[in-house]
Every structure is written in structure tokens, then in C-alpha cells.
């Protein structure tokens, strides 16, 4: 009978970046916030469901985004919730074509009893991430809630940046190539291995990093060749590519042999039976690139320390719009959009 009681309560799957979350946003949030059916020109609003919103200012665009961060455990190999909170917002701005950050906000909600030393460690890590991104936190807010009313710490960051041209997640055209800026699945696998105490003798590290510098480099090298961008966070590359393909009205075919995946991630993925395509990344981007510019884009990416593993992984087709197909080398299969949580609360 469970199908009859679905969806009158918020479940973990509604925050997992997959189909259930998209449905909740469409049915509840868009209904509340999108009052004007005619979105004015010069505005990218909530209905676009892009990485950020944007308002036209003269000949440029002011891009804004906000992101709340909850993760268990708050410290993990390769990063912590503070670094994640800066990278998450900076990367969302960069994905809109706005890598030069004007300013960030930081709101922290703490649970009574949270160790002061942990808070300071998190803040120090945020400072380092800000320096890497060339960004500054210009205002903030602090709240404390009673013990048990919150699990440790929640951090919200918001950010603003100016873009000369917007890059949207729905701009793919048939014939465009798909490039990923580095290895897939590192963040989610590192967090999962830590959380489940998988005592593996493997070097699993989150890739969490602000990548606005990398994106600036590629936008400079090939300013007109980038047709779409999205960072494959929750729901992994599978979810991001589904969204890009369906908004763009194209099909996407991926070459599995070309997907950059570290051996350690591949090993755990075999062990636990989770496809690296479904696993979150926090320092990567998927780019739609005009075919003629692939060489230039790869060269610019690989010249940057955060882009050395960049790879051409797929192609956009007119056929099968909205579908993501994986060529495994043995045959073809669909890459399904993840439904709910593989790993709750990882970013």
C-alpha cells in the first residue's frame, strides 16, 4: 500500500538531487515563487532551475546563487563542510559563466554543544578556500539551536558575480561535445567510505575545490565555444547530464572507456555496486563544447592544476532527446536518472 502514502511527507530522497527532488521543486517551490507566467527578458528566475539566478545590469549579468550545506561527517578525507560551503557557491556562479566573484555571504547554524575547536577549524578551511577562489565573505549570520534540534552544523553561503555572457545548462546543440574537467565520483565515494568505515587501503579523497579559476581559463581560451555548463554534484554526472539533455532537447551518448575515474573509486564502485556516474563531485564541471573547439578547450583545461584529467567523454545528438546513453564498449544502455538517495546528506 506504500504507493498510496507517497509524498505527503518530505523524505530524504527529496533532497538527493534526483528525480524526486526535481519533482518537489517543480510542484512546491516553483508554485510558490514563480507568480508571473511571463518571465521578463533580462531575468533568469527560479523556473529555469539553473545553477543560479541572473538579472541583466546594462550589458552584463548579475548572477546570484545560494546553497545550504549539511554533511555527515563534517570532516572527511580531502575536505570539510567549510571548504564545501565555499566551493559549492563559487562553482555554481562559475557554471553560469561568472567566475569573478564579487562577494559571498556565510550563515552558520550550530547545535548547542558543538566543539569550538571544530568550528574554528571549519572557518580556517573556509578562509583557505576563499583565497583559492579569490573571493571574500562580506556578511554573515550566526544562530545556535538546542541540543538535538540540529545535527552539528549547517552552513549556508550565497554569492554574487558579474558575467559578460551567461552560460546556461540548457544550451547544448546536436553535434556539441561533452567534456568533463576531471575524474568522476571522488567526493561521494570518499564520504561514503568514511561514513561506513570501509577500512580500505585506498587513497580516496574528496575533490572539493573552487574551480572558478579553471572555468575562467577555459572561457578566456574559447569564449564562444562553451554552449553549456553544469557541475555534477548530488546525483552525479548522470543527473547533471539528464538535466542538460532534457533542457537542451538533445540526446547525449557517452563513451564509458573515456570516462576518467580513479582506480580507487572504480574499486569501491565494484565493491558496493554503485556506478561512479551516479556519485557526487564537488570540484568538477561538465561542459558542452562546439566540436571545432574541443582541442583548444582540452588544452586550456589541462594546463590548469585542477584540469589535468580533463577528458572528452561524449557527444550530443538530435536523436533521442532527453536520453543519456552509455556506450560500454560491449553494447549500449541507458543511464537512468537517479530516483532518490544513494548516499544521504553528502553536500
Amino acid at each position: 500500500m506504500s504507493h498510496l502514502v507517497a509524498d505527503d511527507r518530505i523524505m530524504l530522497k527529496h533532497g538527493a538531487g534526483g528525480r524526486a527532488m526535481r519533482r518537489l521543486i517543480e510542484e512546491a517551490f516553483l508554485h510558490a515563487f514563480e507568480t508571473d507566467p511571463e518571465v521578463p527578458a533580462g531575468l533568469v528566475g527560479v523556473a529555469a532551475m539553473d545553477d543560479g539566478g541572473a538579472v541583466r545590469l546594462g550589458d552584463r549579468w548579475l548572477v546570484m546563487t545560494t546553497d545550504s550545506h549539511v554533511i555527515q561527517p563534517p570532516f572527511f578525507p580531502g575536505g570539510d563542510i567549510g571548504r564545501l560551503a565555499i566551493a559549492g557557491t563559487v562553482n555554481d556562479l562559475a557554471m553560469m559563466g561568472a567566475p569573478d566573484i564579487l562577494g559571498l555571504t556565510c550563515a552558520v547554524i550550530l547545535e548547542e554543544g558543538f566543539p569550538r575547536a571544530d568550528l574554528e577549524r571549519i572557518l580556517a578551511s573556509m578562509r583557505v578556500a576563499c583565497e583559492e577562489a579569490g573571493a571574500t565573505v562580506i556578511c554573515g549570520d550566526t544562530k545556535v539551536m538546542g541540543k538535538g534540534e540540529l545535527d552539528g552544523i549547517v552552513i549556508n553561503t550565497a554569492g554574487m558575480a558579474l558575467a559578460p555572457h551567461l552560460v546556461r545548462d540548457g544550451g547544448l546543440r546536436p553535434g556539441d561535445r561533452i567534456i568533463v574537467t576531471g575524474t568522476l565520483g571522488d567526493h561521494g565515494m570518499a564520504v561514503m567510505a568514511t561514513r561506513h568505515g570501509l577500512a580500505l587501503d585506498l587513497d580516496l579523497r574528496s575533490d572539493v575545490a573552487p574551480i572558478n579559476g579553471l572555468i575562467r581559463a577555459v572561457l578566456t581560451a574559447a569564449p564562444d565555444a562553451i554552449t553549456a555548463m553544469k557541475d555534477p554534484t548530488r546525483g552525479g554526472a548522470a543527473s547533471a547530464l539528464h538535466e542538460m539533455a532534457s533542457k537542451s532537447g538533445v540526446g547525449v551518448t557517452l563513451d564509458e572507456a573515456a570516462l576518467p575515474v580513479r582506480d580507487a573509486v572504480r574499486g569501491v564502485s565494484e565493491l558496493v555496486g554503485i556506478d561512479p556516474l551516479l556519485v557526487a563531485n564537488e570540484g568538477k564541471a561538465l561542459l558542452g563544447v562546439r566540436a571545432a573547439a574541443v582541442g583548444r578547450v582540452l588544452e586550456a583545461l589541462r594546463a590548469h592544476p585542477l584540469g589535468v584529467d580533463a577528458a572528452l567523454i561524449g557527444v550530443c545528438t538530435e536523436d533521442r532527446p532527453g536520453m543519456v546513453i552509455l556506450d560500454t564498449g560491449f553494447g549500449r544502455r541507458l543511464v537512468a536518472e537517479p530516483e532518490g538517495e544513494l548516499l544521504p546528506r553528502i553536500c
Partner: peptide
């Protein structure tokens, strides 16, 4: 079948990259 997106006929699809 659900996990891998059903099994439509993909016999003619190739990845030309």
C-alpha cells in the same frame, strides 16, 4: 531494467567521438 532505464532498442546507437 528500471535501474538501467528500461531496455529500449539501442542496437543502432554509436558514440562517434
Amino acid at each position: 531494467w528500471h535501474q538501467y532505464g528500461g531496455v529500449p532498442n539501442l542496437g543502432d546507437v554509436t558514440c562517434p567521438i
